[in-house]
């Protein structure tokens, strides 16, 4: 497909760009080394300056969805990594189920009031998988309506959850992530934690069927306890145009301090891929779509129960 070729070209260009950047940094570091002894800090400063130069002069690539690989690698992921490693102590299982290249549709449960699980899943896919792949998330239109948030989402590789975008990403061989519960999942009360919500219309299933992409069910344990949702101030939500206005044990009582997530212990399990090849005909068959969506949902729910038994104490090390 020519799309694939374009994407590959872009990726190649990006790789070349990154290489050039590394070379520049190395050269500058080399200059610095002439007088001083080999010093890691020289290299770091030179690399940072080279990065700044690339950013300041617009010398980087952005793909057609707005994904800025350089920014994601050098800013977004490093910002999230301390949360991933130290704060939530994330453990992953079954990362080998992700393909080294080519497309896959990752379907995960969604929880935790604000979508921290999306960010952690991106770090998990990039850092734990040997091919260091990027996860391209599909986001609700609310995300793309908000100034600021919409740009962070696009630059980190997300795009609007709609079939044309999902299929375009899959056809160009990307790893696509989706949370079919949507706001029903993130905004559910703490009492209903780890109870999977309804899976919408199953649009993700038809996208996978139409492109013959394997579906990988992913279960995330830990996000529910980060911001236990006790209540929802509906008038305020309506005023802000948000899906809900959360009340947690700390928010809004402690103000900005209440926005610090509780340090729960996280487990992420990537399940066995569900093959959909050769089923393109059933993409428009509602029965087939619902059945497959149900199968994915059941798999995630059962895995959640199993993971919860592995982690009896949400605050364990």
């Amino acid at each position: 497909m020519s799309d694939g070729r374009f994407e590959a070209g872009d990726a190649h260009q990006m790789a070349a760009d990154a290489h050039q950047m590394a070379a520049d940094a190395h050269q500058l570091a080399g200059d610095a080394d002439e007088t001083a002894e080999a010093d890691v800090w020289d290299g770091r400063v030179a690399r940072l300056l080279a990065l700044l130069r690339h950013r300041l002069t617009g010398d980087y690539e952005v793909d057609e969805f707005g994904f800025d690989r350089q920014l994601t690698e050098s800013v977004f992921l490093p910002l999230m990594r301390p949360f991933y490693r130290t704060w939530f102590r994330v453990e992953t299982y079954g990362i080998k189920h992700l393909p080294d290249d080519g497309p896959a549709l990752i379907v995960a449960n969604h929880s935790g009031t604000i979508a921290l699980d999306a960010a952690m899943l991106c770090v998990a896919v990039h850092d734990e998988h040997p091919a260091r792949r990027f996860l391209r998330l599909l986001g609700a239109d609310f995300v793309f309506r908000m100034p600021g948030l919409s740009e962070v989402a696009r630059k980190s590789g997300s795009t609007l959850a709609c079939n044309p975008d999902a299929e375009r990403l899959l056809r160009s061989g990307e790893l696509v992530g989706v949370f079919p519960e949507g706001f029903k999942g993130v905004g559910k009360p703490f009492a209903e934690r780890y109870k999977l919500q309804r899976f919408g219309r199953g649009g993700f299933v038809s996208a996978a069927l139409r492109t013959g992409t394997p579906i990988i069910p992913v279960s995330i344990v830990g996000a529910e306890e980060t911001y236990p949702l006790l209540g929802n101030i509906r008038p305020l939500a309506r005023l802000l145009g948000a899906p809900y206005f959360p009340v947690t044990p700390l928010f809004p009582w402690l103000g900005p301090l209440g926005m610090v997530p509780l340090p729960s212990k996280w487990l992420i399990e990537f399940g066995e891929p569900i093959v959909t090849e050769g089923m393109a005909d059933s993409a428009d068959d509602p029965m087939a779509v619902f059945n497959l969506a149900d199968q994915v949902r059941e798999t995630i729910q059962q895995t959640l129960h199993r993971l919860l038994e592995l982690r009896p104490d949400p605050w364990s090390a």
Binding site: E64, F65, F144, R145, S150, L160, C162, P164, D165, R168
Partner: peptide
Amino acid sequence: SFRDPAVFTEDT
């Protein structure tokens, strides 16, 4: 608009 797909084809 923010509701549009990222890439328009002629049939959009």
